[in-house]
């Protein structure tokens, strides 16, 4: 029974992927055709060699994702460290303020952000897009940071201090190794948030900072299934890749840490 359920879940996840992949290697494959007919590598050729915008959009998305993942995690974890030291009700209030951007529709939010970016001359720049993505990502990374910092008993830091650790050694030898899985987890979440965003990149990037999702949108709009599917497969593959890489590293790092959170 367990095997059947696992099989159904795998099929449900992989079937759309398989069908999308088939659209990238067959020229004409539409309903009511049961099986594809004409094999082609035109779309992949287009992606890798003919249309440089496609590769550039992937690199842009990767760059923005990495920047957002890194900066949101750093900012969020610093805030998380401070908030984890506050009393529960006080940090809930602060977190509410922090999370306000998540409560309003992204379109309304980013139009407001766009006005600020215009004043700061950050539109059409990578920095502007990263800052816009951070508005949405930092509340998540802060929450992850709070959970991880709360998992480290304050007495453990006190032990390290009595053994001879000052602030820098305490951070380097005790805190950093213990929060590394959290940093990776937060980094990957923020990467994926940025990587999947269309609206902020299109609005703040203003056509100069072209991301993969921004490029994907017009292809879908024009019913160009072959190119849409190719970009879609690249998009999903990167997301899945990031998920599994993070999972693997985190697993390796946390296999000995479990007793801290028991």
């Amino acid at each position: 029974m367990k095997k059947i359920i696992t099989g159904i879940i795998i099929l449900l996840i992989s079937l759309p992927m398989i069908l999308t992949f088939l659209l990238t290697v067959f020229t004409y494959y539409k309903y009511p055709q049961l099986l594809p007919s004409q094999l082609t590598f035109e779309y992949w050729n287009n992606f890798f060699f003919k249309n440089p915008l496609m590769i550039r959009s992937v690199l842009n998305s990767l760059f923005l994702g990495l920047m957002n993942g890194t900066s949101s995690t750093i900012v969020g974890f610093m805030a998380g460290r401070a908030l984890s030291k506050q009393k529960e009700n006080r940090h809930t209030r602060t977190m509410l303020l922090y999370s306000l951007p998540l409560f309003i529709p992204a379109t309304a939010l980013f139009i407001g952000v766009h006005l600020i970016m215009l004043r700061l001359s950050f539109t059409n720049t990578y920095l502007g897009v990263v800052l816009a993505h951070m508005v949405l990502s930092v509340p998540y990374s802060t929450n992850i940071g709070i959970s991880f910092f709360k998992g480290i008993p304050s007495e453990m830091e006190q032990v390290a201090r009595t053994i001879g650790c000052r602030d820098f050694n305490l951070f380097k030898k005790v805190i950093l190794p213990l929060i590394t899985p959290g940093l990776l987890f937060s980094g990957s979440i923020c990467f994926l948030l940025s990587f999947s965003d269309y609206f902020a990149a299109a609005l703040i990037g203003g056509g100069k900072v072209i991301t993969l999702s921004a490029l994907l949108y017009p292809y879908i709009n024009n019913a160009d299934y072959g190119n849409s599917a190719t970009l879609g497969i690249v998009f999903v593959s990167i997301n899945i890749g990031v998920f599994f890489i993070t999972e693997r590293i985190t697993k390796r790092l946390t296999k000995v840490n479990t007793y801290l959170f028991e």
Binding site: P153, E155, M156, Q158, V159, A160, K173, V174, P177, L178, L253, V256, N257, T258, Y259, L260
Partner: peptide, 9 residues
């Protein structure tokens, strides 16, 4: 301390 508080890593 009351609990051993060993560094888990």
């Amino acid at each position: 301390f009351q609990s051993p508080l060993l560094f888990p890593h």
